[in-house]
Amino acid sequence: MIRHIVSWKLNGADAAARAEQAATISATLAALPAVIPQILSLQVGTNVAYPENNWDVVLVADYESLEDLEAYQVHPDHVAATHVIRPLVELRSAVDFEA
């Protein structure tokens, strides 16, 4: 199994703007398991502590194989989601590992 973890630091000017951005990202990503069969599980979390140091939003998703992760990456619904998310992001970090 491949675990895909992505963290985002958002570019909103204040906490309220970042909260709205986080809600948009969460809703966008939460819709993907219904349309992308390669996703075994997907969880999105919004940071609740130490906002000056921590990233704002995290995605944790599981795939059966690296090939399934790669299919997810190019799936049209995932590509559309990236077009929603990218304008909201200051920094992005990702790790993919065998779980």
Results as ranks from 00 to 15, higher is better:
residue 1 M to Q: 11
residue 1 M to H: 15
residue 3 R to Y: 04
residue 3 R to C: 10
residue 5 I to H: 03
residue 6 V to S: 02
residue 7 S to K: 11
residue 8 W to I: 02
residue 9 K to P: 05
residue 9 K to F: 01
residue 10 L to W: 07
residue 11 N to E: 09
residue 11 N to V: 09
residue 12 G to Q: 06
residue 13 A to N: 14
residue 13 A to T: 15
residue 14 D to Q: 02
residue 15 A to S: 13
residue 15 A to L: 10
residue 16 A to D: 13
residue 16 A to Y: 02
residue 17 A to G: 06
residue 18 R to M: 07
residue 18 R to K: 15
residue 18 R to V: 02
residue 18 R to C: 12
residue 19 A to M: 07
residue 19 A to T: 13
residue 19 A to D: 15
residue 21 Q to F: 11
residue 22 A to K: 07
residue 22 A to R: 07
residue 22 A to V: 09
residue 23 A to G: 12
residue 23 A to H: 04
residue 24 T to R: 13
residue 24 T to D: 03
residue 25 I to V: 15
residue 25 I to D: 06
residue 25 I to W: 06
residue 27 A to E: 13
residue 27 A to L: 05
residue 30 A to N: 15
residue 31 A to F: 04
residue 32 L to V: 04
residue 32 L to I: 05
residue 33 P to G: 03
residue 34 A to R: 14
residue 36 I to V: 15
residue 36 I to H: 01
residue 37 P to R: 08
residue 37 P to E: 11
residue 38 Q to H: 03
residue 38 Q to P: 02
residue 40 L to G: 11
residue 42 L to P: 06
residue 42 L to F: 05
residue 43 Q to A: 14
residue 43 Q to V: 13
residue 43 Q to R: 14
residue 44 V to L: 09
residue 44 V to Q: 03
residue 45 G to L: 09
residue 45 G to S: 12
residue 48 V to N: 09
residue 48 V to Y: 10
residue 48 V to S: 11
residue 48 V to P: 00
residue 49 A to P: 00
residue 49 A to Q: 11
residue 49 A to L: 08
residue 50 Y to D: 11
residue 50 Y to A: 09
residue 51 P to H: 07
residue 53 N to R: 10
residue 54 N to R: 02
residue 55 W to H: 13
residue 55 W to L: 14
residue 57 V to T: 01
residue 57 V to E: 01
residue 57 V to Y: 00
residue 58 V to A: 14
residue 59 L to C: 09
residue 59 L to M: 12
residue 61 A to G: 09
residue 62 D to A: 08
residue 63 Y to E: 10
residue 63 Y to A: 12
residue 64 E to D: 14
residue 65 S to V: 04
residue 66 L to A: 15
residue 68 D to V: 07
residue 69 L to S: 08
residue 69 L to D: 03
residue 70 E to Y: 00
residue 70 E to T: 08
residue 71 A to Y: 00
residue 71 A to H: 01
residue 72 Y to N: 06
residue 72 Y to D: 05
residue 73 Q to P: 00
residue 73 Q to S: 13
residue 76 P to N: 04
residue 76 P to V: 02
residue 79 V to C: 00
residue 79 V to K: 09
residue 79 V to W: 00
residue 80 A to W: 02
residue 81 A to G: 01
residue 82 T to F: 02
residue 83 H to S: 13
residue 83 H to I: 02
residue 84 V to R: 05
residue 84 V to Y: 04
residue 84 V to E: 07
residue 85 I to S: 04
residue 85 I to G: 08
residue 86 R to K: 14
residue 87 P to H: 07
residue 88 L to C: 09
residue 89 V to G: 08
residue 90 E to I: 08
residue 90 E to R: 15
residue 91 L to T: 12
residue 91 L to R: 15
residue 91 L to V: 14
residue 92 R to Y: 06
residue 93 S to C: 09
residue 93 S to L: 12
residue 93 S to G: 11
residue 94 A to L: 08
residue 95 V to F: 12
residue 95 V to K: 05
residue 98 E to G: 10
residue 99 A to D: 08
residue 99 A to P: 08
